[in-house]
Design a protein around this nucleic acid. Sequence first.
DNA 1: CAAAAATAAAAGTAATACTATCATATTTTA
DNA 2: TAAAATATGATAGTATTACTTTTATTTTTG
Lengths: 224, 224
Amino acid sequence: MKYILQDLKVKINDKIYIKDPESSALGKRIIENSIIMIQEIGFESFTFKKLGEKIKSNESSIYRYFENKHKLLLYLTSWYWGWLEYQLVFATNSISNSEDKLRKAIEIITRTIEEDSSFSHINEVLLNKIVINEYSKSYLTKEVDEENKEGYFSFYKRLVIRLNDMIKEVDTTYPYPSSLSSTIIEGALHQHFLKDHFPSLTNCNETITPTTYFTDLVFNSIKK
Amino acid sequence: MKYILQDLKVKINDKIYIKDPESSALGKRIIENSIIMIQEIGFESFTFKKLGEKIKSNESSIYRYFENKHKLLLYLTSWYWGWLEYQLVFATNSISNSEDKLRKAIEIITRTIEEDSSFSHINEVLLNKIVINEYSKSYLTKEVDEENKEGYFSFYKRLVIRLNDMIKEVDTTYPYPSSLSSTIIEGALHQHFLKDHFPSLTNCNETITPTTYFTDLVFNSIKK
DNA sequence: CAAAAATAAAAGTAATACTATCATATTTTA
DNA sequence: TAAAATATGATAGTATTACTTTTATTTTTG
């Protein structure tokens, strides 16, 4: 698994970047350190100038890779959803029973990314935290429809559709499979956030995980 | 109902503002027009300078009411959740059957705010759109824990807890009432957003409403 | 080794997010 | 009703952001 993951390259829509950060050492440092920095100080406070200082490069050099920090966030989150989709496919592929498959899919999507199975320069534990705290900012904009047309959200959409398909496989008659799928994916991020900042608004904690909650939710809604 | 609503004053935490916008004509113009403007151009592009031009007042005068636009967003969204709570209490109060009560509560929380039942200077149809598009930005910040301690999210929390209580009333044994409650409230905003921008990720449309979907979801999860 | 490409350094611009000062208008109250 | 207090408006100023441009330097490659 490790070996395969090391070879995996998530192919990001090339309109998101000006120059592919995977194509150079500087590009990789930009990605690696932007993840660390956004996680540390938050997306609002993060600037290309600060990142330049951190990686001892120049602001103007970073602008040759990404138009602006919004595009960089789109890049990072696209990578995350692509990575998660790979995890999902890898883990569910061999399961023939559709109920077991769905169960596993929910687990993959809602679990806490804990062990640092990080390969190369991307720390997906930190990246998962960024997705929890910043992802919705990437689509809650006035430009969402244009950017959607450009395909900037295609990994996310593909994941929602994949889960939707798995739900349908278990119960063809369930009338809201894509709403349920999008609720799980977005809701999982939200429950993880609440657990850390608004514990009174969730039952999730060290013992009850979002996986437990969403598994129960899904299997009560669809017929088994 | 109209009459009562006209008298309702949502009492916002006074640390959110510097000077109470309800206390003056200028303050009310700030609120009224900031809602219109944020809805029009989005929160990112919105500035106090632009608002000043629109209401023919001065940037510096607006700063005497709100420290910054983040606090203004907290004010507007607090007002919205307070208003929605009022709607909820008003509509469910007289229902004695706890299942019917929950059903009505879900309806109030997940429905599209359509008719402009606006009173005074606040247009809650536009405000609902702002909440759909911008609310998560108000808490997805590095300051969320401090601001939560200051009580800036108390209306939202109270609504989640109220719905949680109603779920418990119907089924005391259900193990995830607060997660379900927060999923409904956050999820309803999300489904409304998807319906407008990512229709392939939701089953909600003109005929299937978020209310239909969430009502089904809830009553399949809890025992009746 | 020369040419091309990538990166770094520095400077410049327009806008943002404020703060401060002072003038003027309006309201309050003595 | 005059004086005082308060609210608002106009103007200017500051630091930072979000870039763009130009030029110099370093690295890569043919």
